[in-house]
Design a protein around this nucleic acid. Structure first.
Lengths: 142, 142
DNA sequence: CCGTTAAATGAAACCCATTATCAATAGAAC
DNA sequence: GTTCTATTGATAATGGGTTTCATTTAACGG
């Protein structure tokens, strides 16, 4: 694994006087190898399949590290657990969540973004982040 | 208190073979009297100020009842606790949340709604609910 | 009214994702 | 290597929210 993402993580780690460990590498690899929107528990299962001795707490801690270093985004669809997706080289997007099968569709609509800025400005509000989730039924579950 | 909302609650209650109790009245009254976006704990404090013998579990249970009967909407801004707002006779809207002071501004932009439907349709997705939260700094906190 | 029945209540136990604790381990720099 | 300090795994703790259960109390029929 000599990915660009590993470099990003190593840069972040050295810049903050942290250490590169076998566990962190393993969590990053499992995260990158998985294209889903994973929960900490999901990732724990994936990691321990390859490296049985990694603890759940370390997965949580490493996910925080990935989020801080800009490699992962934390998502909250309101179902009681956070999920994580790749952020590196991935532009901003919103989500449609199928309440039947759990499928997640990413989308981006420039005009929606534009009108968000517009309505915010009209209220004297400065947006630092925003989140649009659409829940419903995907084409395969109709 | 002879509000229209109480009628709605009583209708829902009698239609489901439930019972109108002093506690439910008290929770509804406290909820209606408060124009904020309250958490269960907030509402518990408000209710017990007037009716000291109401338990927290009852507040949770009654909030579920209010949500089911269409009097309240459940909100989740991702800070670990659910909030509730008036729904009766209140149209759909989204929220701007000031991360400085906690102020919540409600807004609605028809074009945003329209483009949401559009992008959903383009993906064969049928929206059942959606949620747009914009986090940032309000005019008073600039 | 009064009795019967089942829903509602309060207190406390429980749940569950996530975080903190802490003694033991292991990178990193010299 | 040695030293220093971050990291780890196991486990306890946290905190919003829900469930349990014995007791209370609405609601309905007579």
């Amino acid at each position: 694994m000599a990915s660009k993402e590993l470099e990003v993580l190593e840069d972040y780690i050295t810049q903050n006087n942290l250490k590169i460990t076998r566990q962190r590498r393993a969590v990053l690899k499992a995260f990158l190898d998985c294209e889903e929107h994973v929960s900490a528990e999901d990732l724990y299962r994936l990691v321990t399949a390859a490296e049985p001795k990694v603890g759940l707490a370390t997965v949580y801690r490493t996910l925080a590290l990935l989020t801080q270093s800009g490699l992962a985004s934390e998502l909250d669809f309101g179902d009681g657990q956070k999920r994580y997706e790749h952020k590196y080289m991935h532009g901003h997007h919103d989500h449609m969540i199928c309440t039947e099968c759990g499928k997640i569709i990413e989308f981006n609509h420039p005009l929606i973004e534009k009108f968000q800025e517009e309505v915010a400005a009209r209220n004297g509000f400065t947006i630092t982040s925003h989140k649009l989730d659409m829940f419903g039924i995907c084409s395969e579950c109709r």
